[in-house]
Design a protein around this nucleic acid. Structure first.
Ligand code: FES
Ligand code: FES
Lengths: 154, 154
DNA sequence: TATAATTCAGACTCTTTTATCTTTAATTTA
DNA sequence: TAAATTAAAGATAAAAGAGTCTGAATTATA
């Protein structure tokens, strides 16, 4: 897998928060958990990390929850991925050899570095503003059909 | 990580075997282990799986070891990757959502499917014949500098 | 036939990831 | 102040991946 579970959950949750309409300030984690069918406690930990990375703000107590720490156009998917998975996915040799570069290429370096650049560029240029618009229009989905059923709370 | 450790070890070992010169039939796993600095027993299991997938032939006893089951141009890197990591890497949504396609795209589908196609094409078109030539010429490396030191046998 | 070299097979341990459970702290509201 | 709501924090457990260990089976060679 390119992205860890932690990372995909973080991405989905952030996209969910970004695409929330309405005047309320904070979105409760429990609601995100239910809508996206992600374990509440697990999601809490993930969002805590996003909070410490200054991608989210959190607030405790009634009407509390999380919200974006910046405007949606200032947050790229790459920011979230790096906060949760680090950049070990994008740097380093795909075969695990020490070092990665044109000077000492492994057999996959040529094709991989090309693909990698495309992926990195995509993740950096994709920000929450663009995507949340499309999500609100219904052109993009951030959940499967499992949330047609309700998740049992944990 | 895109590829598991199992998979990268399998790729390196296969490339090593393919780039062996000489008239001997089988390459002992212990020698591959030493040259590539991979745990012998772990590598043994990996090569067993490649044997059952008809990528390698094995032979027991003195002068035994493994060899390619087909000619190098008949084995692509994709064959090895699929034998060891399956195709779950290449199929399915990068965000873990059920299903992946143009009809129900997730926010990363556009960029990911493009990158994915490039990667798949690279892995399918790269065969052992091409690569072992380059390795023998010294243009490609299949190990880091750790094999400048000897690995303690396990 | 005895011995050494080698793969095969399975159980086992260790580590990381993923997930759950419980308690604590902060905040609002009545 | 008391009660309810919510995130924070930590302990624990389950699952998967990575790696180790031991013994058995096969084969060549002396
Ligand atoms: S050296 Fe292997 S991917 Fe660059
Ligand atoms: S739907 Fe997510 S990658 Fe295709």
């Amino acid at each position: 897998m390119l992205l860890s579970k932690t990372c995909t959950y973080g991405l989905l949750a952030t996209l969910f928060v970004a695409s929330q309409k309405g005047e309320r300030d904070y979105v409760p984690i429990r609601e995100i958990s239910r809508q996206l069918n992600i374990s509440f406690h697990f999601l809490t930990k993930i969002l805590q990390r996003l909070t410490t990375h200054n991608i989210m703000n959190s607030y405790r107590g009634p009407n509390g929850g999380v919200r974006l720490a910046k405007t949606p156009d200032e947050i790229s998917l790459m920011d979230i991925i790096q906060a949760l998975d680090g950049n070990k996915i994008f740097e380093g040799c795909v075969l695990g050899l020490p070092g990665c570069g044109e000077s000492t290429p492994c057999p996959l370096h040529q094709s991989w570095s090309q693909s990698r650049d495309i992926i990195i560029h995509s993740f950096m240029s994709a920000n929450l503003a663009n995507m949340s618009q499309e999500i609100q229009k219904g052109n993009l989905r951030i959940s499967g059909m499992e949330n047609w059923f309700t998740r049992k709370d944990d």
